[in-house]
Design a protein around this nucleic acid. Structure first.
Lengths: 311, 311
DNA sequence: CCCAGGATGTAGTTCTACTTAAGGCTGGCT
DNA sequence: AGCCAGCCTTAAGTAGAACTACATCCTGGG
């Protein structure tokens, strides 16, 4: 097997035309270069240099190997720059799993921000509903997943959770509903109302059920729609009232809402779902993943601020 | 600088998915592989493998470097096969300098024979008249040169001479010439004849002059043509008689000669020019050059035999 | 709860790569 | 012709790299 190190030395010898010059150029003694050339000739099984009194001349085989060394050296240099690009975040790939309402309001702007900082990064997005993305994260099949999760949920082994925002639920009512006259509601105000369910069993629905439970009632779901948009359609049609997290609202701000819908804050208690980013605990955090998490946090804090005091 | 050796080990680790398996595959202990990977990670400045309880998984950078290692390994393998081809004579290049009469009768058939044995060999032929090819050979600008040279000529430093054949001179006469009646001539028979010179000053002409000198006369050149074909034209036109080496004869055999020319052997003494191949003494004789010299010798001995007893 | 399999440290050995020092060769100079 | 300078090589010795053996730690499964 040919040794690359020696082939690079051969290249220096051939290009400079003498062992001594190559040694000077490489910072070695001529003896070292000479020995390496002898070893390479033994490896190659054929003479590579011809001693010509003053200096050496490459033999045909020597010229061939020197040429090969040049192209291989170029490839190694390419590998090095590719590695440097990867380390600096100029290139890279990130795989993200997200759930429906997080896509438009969190992942999309975060990725836009990431790609403005790191234009060469490729992203692979995948909607994870209704599967649990955590095994994917743990197995390394994806780099990050957005999940809804209680603050007091037990830690998951091998996964690190980064808190992004607390997504507060709002009451969505028909504009003509008597409760819509009030600027804000108490959760118990909805105890007797027919509710339009918008969530499948899972942490989101749990957040609602927990809040209602601590308010002392069990919500009366008259319809179960699988998603927030459909639920709000039911509300507009007068079927009932819905509890929808801010990120799921059709009209993000309460002021310029849907013509037939009213959105009101809910308190005592305010149902909240916590949104987290889940990353593998053992993952070496490269610039790309770090940048993406930072972008997510930035987008989330803006969203929280914008939602907290509606303009 | 990335170390190729370690990158190949990384490739084995990535492809087998575990340090231990790679070690088994490479004939090392797991510890050795682990240490090399740690060293490579330090070189790369970034983690390349992620420890996942059971086994290791390559990180993005690790995958990148492993891919690069694969392509580089392929290039090294290509270099090795190219070298093997060169060593086996399947490829190669040979540069030959020759003089006019040697071209058709020696070099061409020898090269044909060489290329039938080594089809991939490229040849670079160059007519060397009237320059001296020996400096070219000595400087390595050409691999072999055909030269005419006396047997007792002094050795030339750094050049090895391989004897190919002794090219005997024949008398070329008009068919009607009185001497043409004899089956063979003595050199002194030509002492009084008008001679057509066919050679420029040099070793060929020297051979003729030497023979005539030892026969006791100085040839009387009435015309000086530069080449054998022209000289024989002069003879056919009746201008005189010519001494032409066998390889320079228009009709190689005496029996089926030119309609107006007679070719007769000359003895006492018979002028002879010796044809040699000159190669660099320090040149490592590869299969191509060795094959070419062998082919030359083979062709020459056939020519000598064919000329010695004309069928 | 222990065990098998894997990865990684540590100490020691072997091998490689380099240096220093000396020798041999070539080519040019005087 | 003879000396000298430059270059390549060999020999011996040394520093460092690479590998092994052994011990330890961790993980996943019975």
């Amino acid at each position: 097997m040919l040794d690359m190190r020696r082939m690079q030395i051969l290249r220096a010898v051939v290009s400079s035309g003498s062992v001594t010059a190559a040694a000077r150029h490489l910072g070695y003694t001529p003896s070292a270069v000479s020995q390496q050339m002898a070893a390479l000739e033994k490896e190659a099984g054929t003479p590579l240099l011809e001693r010509t009194g003053r200096g050496v001349r490459p033999t045909d085989a020597g010229l061939l190997l020197a040429d090969c060394a040049t192209t291989i050296g170029r490839h190694v240099a390419q590998a090095e720059t590719a590695l440097a690009d990867l380390r600096a975040g100029r290139t890279g790939r990130i795989s993200v799993r997200y759930f429906a309402t997080a896509g438009a309001r969190l992942v999309a702007p975060a990725l836009a921000r990431l790609r403005s900082e790191h234009p060469g990064v490729q992203a692979e997005l995948r909607l994870t509903d209704p599967d649990d993305p955590l095994p994917e994260v743990k197995a390394g099949r994806t780099d990050a997943a957005l999940v809804v999760r209680r603050h007091d949920a037990p830690p998951v082994d091998g996964i690190r959770f980064v808190h992004l925002l607390d997504d507060r639920y709002r009451a969505v009512l028909p504009r003509a509903h008597p409760l819509a006259a009030r600027p804000a509601l108490r959760l118990t105000d909805l105890a007797e109302e027919p509710l339009v369910g918008s969530e499948l069993p899972g942490p989101c629905l749990d957040a609602v059920l927990d809040a209602c439970g601590s308010a002392g009632f069990t919500p009366d779901f008259v319809v179960d729609s699988g998603d927030y948009a459909t639920a709000q359609g039911f509300v507009a049609a007068g079927v009932g009232v819905a509890l929808v997290p801010e990120m799921g609202l059709l009209a993000p701000s309460a002021s310029d809402g849907h013509p037939e819908l009213a959105v009101r804050e809910v308190h005592d208690p305010e149902p909240v779902r916590s949104i987290w980013a889940a990353v593998r605990a053992t993952a070496p955090e490269g610039p790309v993943l770090r940048g993406f998490l930072g972008a997510l946090r930035g987008v989330a804090s803006q969203a929280q601020a914008g939602g907290a005091d509606p303009a």
